[in-house]
Write a protein that binds this DNA or RNA. Structure first.
Lengths: 156, 156
DNA sequence: AGTGAAAACCACTTAAT
DNA sequence: ATTAAGTGGTTTTCACT
């Protein structure tokens, strides 16, 4: 993982459909060299896939919310994890340090569907004692782009 | 935006490098018809781009945290927004309803860089009165995939 | 708006250095 | 890692439905 790999990863995060030839011109390598580096980046699991970014609101998902979930005992963690993995409205689920056991990020059609999610789905999962919902009013930034500065790559 | 568009968007979210021919076989259209639909989906801003997904921890970013930020008066909102847009460690910034004014999602190299971010950057922004940090222990789900069910597409 | 056929173009792979 | 060559595939275009 050197400076050139870093730049390739950077460029592919910006344009996941960039061709090897385009990338080779940007980084100053030959195109087969870029092909080989991409192959290794994928093999090592640094690049995990490629996706189209979509505008959620244009697909009818207008509500974003963060939900803190308290669970009464760790024995319920596994069952909870299994349930949220199966819920398509849950984009993220993180176990966290602090008062809540989990923080979820959800995207729903409207407040009614959010309500249904909360009371009919989440609150019925074993061990869930409390949920605390924070509704997003406007998102000023929402990206997945990982900025990698050269000094941070030493161990990679 | 009909059922076929929906399926194309779904497939491209799963594989952003799928070819028009592959997509055409999956949805049962001719390949030029798929090309035209993709062109329109991009033109209408439903598909906003394509990116490579990367493993943040393999790029040396081990810490994920959510930071609630209180701002003393709305007049500071714009300046705050401008600052966080310029911070590469901030992946998401949402203005929210509730006690906090903003929720940030950040990804940093380690706890030391998180600390620096908090005390040297965030807390020095005008109007910020309080921050409340929640550290992620493990992420059980983290995706951007928007699930679109057919009934939800009526207005799109 | 979709189809089929064909053209033009380009991407990726392989081989040799 | 590079260049060069070759192959296969992807996208574009067009005439037609």
């Amino acid at each position: 993982m050197d400076e050139l790999d870093h730049r390739i990863v950077d460029l592919l995060q910006r344009d996941g459909r960039a061709t090897q030839l385009e990338l080779s011109r940007s980084v100053g390598l030959s195109q087969p060299a870029v092909a080989e580096r991409i192959r290794k980046l994928e093999e090592r699991g640094i690049i995990t896939g490629y996706t189209a970014r979509v505008d959620a609101s244009k697909l009818g998902k207008d509500i974003t919310a963060f939900i803190g979930v308290s669970i009464e005992h760790p024995k319920y963690f596994e069952g909870f994890a299994r349930k949220v993995l199966a819920m398509p409205e849950v984009l993220e689920a993180h176990r966290v340090a602090g008062q809540d056991s989990y923080i979820l990020k959800v995207r729903t059609r409207n407040t009614k569907t959010l309500d249904t999610l909360l009371v009919e789905t989440l609150r019925t999962i074993s061990g869930v004692t409390r949920t605390h919902t924070t509704i997003v009013l406007t998102s000023i930034k929402e990206e997945t782009y990982i900025h990698v500065s050269p000094e941070e790559l030493k161990g990679a």
